[in-house]
């Protein structure tokens, strides 16, 4: 395509931004559904994870040897709640059936949500705080600090993450805390880069110079001028990382690197893989739940980006 045409298109896109406010309005109704459905699903998953202890269902590890691989809707006799405090066996309906060891799938999904959400939310939070803070400082002060930070984060990026996880699980054990810290550490460079790049563009803007001219301190400029502008792209990015890490947890389960002591969605998929022929639901039910959750976080991230996009140009 011709260069001049290329220039035209670029210009046309500017013009489009000018006129797109209207197109946005027209899409608003659809947009709201795409915003509220993901929020509703995430809230539901959260609710399940938080309230898992109080529901009248067997513990996720309780094996009902009479109902191994039972199809959805099968009834059985199980102790409700924690095994020690339960008052004998009670009548129970396995709404989603049981796995090959006779464990209730509903219960495992609800408790498994804890692992996925803890890992998925806390690890990015670590990256957000450390990487974001470092990135803002590096982008604002530049100089030696930036050079050092770039060196460190590049090293982290170059280091194969899977080796780090293997080492941690091998030497320190695969606890949820260890995994969260390790994954959080691995997300630091990405957050660092997003924060630094955004800070660089805002630090040059004249409202920052204006604040300096008024006598504002560096810390106050970072917190009051730059942070409000940088935090939104960071949050949007964090939501994408949340979705990514939920998937990563599933992958780690396949490698036997996830939390071995607690049920997790990834673990359920990994275990169900052997029975794909006879009982595909053992794989697909947790996979579907994971899919919906990941999709919801991704959609939420996209919507957030659209909604918080401050238009700085005027018609």
């Amino acid at each position: 395509m011709s260069r001049s045409i290329h220039g035209f298109e670029r210009r046309a896109r500017v013009a489009e931004a000018v006129a797109s406010s209207g197109a946005r309005g027209a899409r608003r109704r659809k947009l709201n559904v795409m915003l509220w459905l993901p929020i509703a699903w995430i809230a539901f998953v959260f609710g399940c994870a938080l309230s898992a202890d109080w529901w009248p269902m067997p513990e996720p590890d309780y094996m009902d040897f009479l109902s191994q691989g039972a199809p959805p809707g099968t009834t059985g006799e199980v102790p409700i709640g924690a095994f020690e405090s339960s008052e004998g066996l009670e009548h129970y309906v396995f709404w989603l059936g049981t796995d090959m060891m006779g464990r209730d799938i509903v219960s495992r999904l609800m408790f498994g949500a804890r692992v996925s959400l803890t890992l998925g939310l806390l690890a990015p939070l670590i990256g957000l705080v450390i990487g974001g803070g470092l990135g803002m400082a590096a982008g604002y002060w530049r100089g030696m600090l930036e050079a050092t930070a770039v060196g460190v984060t590049d090293t982290i990026l170059a280091f194969p993450g899977i080796v780090l996880l293997l080492a941690i699980v091998f030497y320190l054990g695969g606890s949820l805390l260890n995994l969260t810290l390790a994954l959080g550490f691995l997300t630091v460079p990405a957050f660092y880069r997003v924060a630094r790049a955004n800070t660089l563009t805002y630090a040059e803007r004249e409202f920052v110079t204006a604040a300096k001219a008024m006598g504002a301190s560096d810390v106050s400029i970072l917190a009051r001028e730059i942070l409000p502008n940088v935090i939104m792209p960071m949050l949007v990015y964090a939501l994408l990382i949340v979705a990514l890490l939920i998937v990563v947890e599933g992958v780690l389960s396949f490698l036997g690197l996830s939390v071995p002591t607690a049920p997790s969605w990834g673990g359920m998929i990994a275990e169900g893989r052997e029975y794909l022929d006879e009982h595909p639901r053992l794989c697909f039910v947790p996979a579907f739940v994971m899919f919906l959750t990941v999709l919801s976080f991704n959609l939420l991230g996209d919507r957030l980006r659209g909604l918080t996009d401050v238009r700085e140009s005027n018609i």
């Binding site: 035209f8 046309a12 013009a15 489009e16 000018v18 797109s20 209207g22």
Partner: peptide
């Protein structure tokens, strides 16, 4: 905002689809 730019862009079809 007087429309002078939109005017000439119209001649070249350099406007958004709206």
């Amino acid at each position: 905002g007087s429309g002078k730019t939109v005017l000439v862009r119209s001649l070249l079809g350099l406007l958004p689809s709206t």
